[in-house]
Design a protein around this nucleic acid. Structure first.
Lengths: 193, 193
DNA sequence: ATTTTCACATACCGATTGGTATGTATTTGC
DNA sequence: GCAAATACATACCAATCGGTATGTGAAAAT
């Protein structure tokens, strides 16, 4: 692991916990044990570091889900894979301080447009991915024909993000497990053919 | 409107948009047209101002819902009143920059414990309120007996908060309307007796 | 009418902010 | 083996941070 990766590994959770403006260069030098010279030798500025830290957080928290979906066959199996993944999400992102997409989405909208755009794009990719799975489920006759993929994608993603928020607000992962139970039994099971 | 209320009215949306650390005294004096002398004459410090601003945001965004629930009779009607209220939520909190509970819940957990506690308590009150409504619906035979009030409260609240987050991330209130459609038709209608 | 109080403005404070210029030691290229 | 480049530390910068002490004019109290 080179210095660049070392800094990111140390700093990414701090940005996710304290936010963009809430994380100072002093926090960064203290957490890494390095000086500002080392930081600015590896990153252009604070914003560059924040963006790369966000990328790392997304890679650890969300990309595994994308890979899981990609390697799972069938719409129904993909949907269950999502809820299964999400059931472990609390512990997965516990040390990170919660969902990075959620954090950046609310934190940077009015103070850091570039970083916000990244979170926005990621959120859109998740929505599109969900809608595509449901669409493919309709085509393969796995799912009923009278459902609107985009509408269901919005509902499921809302439950995923909302339950993650509440789980970390109350330090209680049951918000996630109960929400996933409902998606399994109250949504997926109901739209199955 | 006295100076105290004037300052809060001007500053509350800024705190909700930019966050606690993201809002500086300079932002506050600029938005109000007043000087720091006036601010510190009316509020003890920045944290005091932030807490009162949060209270005001909650009064405008969430307390009307509490009053609506209190004046609505019957569990089913109360539940539909919630989704109806939520359908107007996007426009209600548009100028505020989104849901204040959501904002403070993610923003202050690691940087302002007092303010976070307020958001945590509010979130808990909403959950308890929801669970109580469902519990009363079971007692009055309006709702089925085989449902767990707290579990359903967690699911519904997750959808409310998650859809609010996504609506403001994408400037698209359909996240809320689609989620409320689902709560109406996919949850309330299904647990009705 | 005089004094006191109140509400705000002005001016200033030390500390911290993100960022940079320079110094230095190590490694790399030839 | 010497020069150049790299990687980091040190020292410093103007600007901004939250907060305070003092100044001032108007209103309220006596």
């Amino acid at each position: 692991m080179n210095t660049n990766e070392f800094i990111l590994a140390k700093v990414a959770p701090i940005f996710n916990k304290q936010g963009y403006v809430g994380t100072s260069l002093a926090d960064i030098t203290q957490a890494t044990g390095l000086t500002k010279g080392a930081i600015y030798c590896n990153f252009a500025n604070k914003e560059d570091l924040a963006q790369k830290a966000f990328e790392l957080n997304v890679r650890t928290a969300i990309y595994p889900l994308f890979r899981l979906i990609a390697t799972t066959q069938g719409a129904i199996h993909k949907l269950y894979a999502i809820t299964t993944y999400q059931r472990g999400y609390y512990h997965l992102v516990k040390d990170l301080g919660g969902c990075p997409m959620l954090r950046v989405g609310v934190d940077t909208k009015y103070i850091n447009p570039l970083l916000f755009k990244q979170a926005e794009n990621l959120s859109k990719r998740m929505l599109d991915g969900l809608a595509t799975i449901i669409e493919e489920g309709k085509l393969s006759q796995e799912l009923k024909q009278d459902i609107n993929p985009l509408d269901y994608a919005k509902v499921i993603l809302s439950m995923i993000e909302g339950s993650s928020l509440l789980a970390f607000t109350h330090n209680d992962e049951s918000y996630i497990s109960k929400a996933m139970d409902f998606i399994d039994n109250g949504i997926i099971a109901k739209i199955k053919n």
